[in-house]
């Protein structure tokens, strides 16, 4: 591509530099306050480096119970959203144009609905059936929209499936169920893994839907939100540093894997 001219390239570079400064400087502020002994979290008053806030987090029972709840919810959401998403995608692949259109609209609608509405409608529904809000309603509310992500991923994968293998298996006398288990399922395996990871992360990180559907209980993220409001202890910043570390590692691994996959595809 021919450059549009040195001047405009320079402006664009400068603009991008500004944008990335805008993206990363606030995070830098948060990280710095997490290792500053001054409390409340601050970078304008520096009192020396410390790991104290990490120790405080380690000793905080409510954070740990929140973490346990987050993990329970995330695992349950994976177990529920994946089969629902896959079933939805398989169902769509066999419906007529009209009914597929309607079913598809309903299935993607949770992605276009504000999270708080999914949360609160789940709580209203279950209260009418006599159940109070808690981990259970949080799991169902999260699954409603996380299954949509799974469905879209499975649908994209299924559209690329070559059906000749399946047909050959059926010709050779395999039952439908067996052909599905031995051919379609292995074909879907990479998507199942990705969808599971995404479902787990989406669930673990969710705030808006969860805060409206969890009732008196809490997850790690809702507890962090409650503490943040008053910004009292830099412990929040220490947790932030841990989150950032995990995110950076995951992002780098993900991008390396993607690059390798692209190279393999290019070679094939």
């Amino acid at each position: 591509m021919k450059p549009a001219g040195m001047g405009s390239t320079l402006v664009l570079r400068l603009y991008m530099g500004l944008f990335f400064a805008y993206m990363f400087l606030p995070l830098g502020v948060m990280v710095a306050a997490g290792v500053n002994s001054y409390s409340p979290p601050s970078i304008t008053v520096w009192q020396g480096f410390t790991f104290r806030w990490f120790a405080e987090f380690w000793a905080d029972a409510r954070m740990w119970s929140g973490l346990v709840n987050s993990l329970v919810i995330a695992v349950a959401v994976m177990a529920l959203a994946l089969p629902m998403g896959l079933s939805g995608a398989l169902l769509l692949s066999q419906l007529g144009r009209r009914s597929a259109g309607i079913a598809y609209t309903v299935m993607v609608s949770p992605l276009l609905t504000p999270g708080i509405i999914i949360g609160i409608s789940t709580v209203i529904f279950w209260r009418n059936l006599g159940a109070t809000a808690g981990l259970f309603t949080a799991i169902l509310a999260q699954s409603a929209f996380i299954a949509s992500y799974a469905m879209l991923m499975f649908m994209a994968r299924l559209q690329r499936q070559d059906h000749t293998l399946e047909e050959a298996a059926l010709d050779l006398g395999a039952t439908r169920a067996r052909a599905f288990r031995r051919i379609t399922l292995p074909f879907l395996k990479p998507t199942i893994v990705t969808a599971a990871v995404i479902a787990f992360l989406q669930s673990f990180e969710n705030y808006n839907t969860t805060i409206f559907s969890i009732g008196g209980n809490h997850t790690l993220v809702t507890e962090i939100g409650a503490r943040m409001r008053f910004g009292i202890s830099p412990m929040i910043n220490a947790i932030g540093i841990l989150f950032i570390l995990v995110t950076v590692i995951c992002a780098v691994v993900w991008s390396l894997l993607r690059q390798r996959e692209r190279k393999r595809e290019a070679a094939a």
């Binding site: 502020v29 948060m30 306050a33 910004g231």
Partner: peptide, 14 residues
């Protein structure tokens, strides 16, 4: 990918 709450909190501090 960094949690929404942390990105918000950074601005609360700023």
């Amino acid at each position: 990918a960094i949690n929404e709450l942390l990105r918000i909190f950074a601005w609360q501090m700023i």
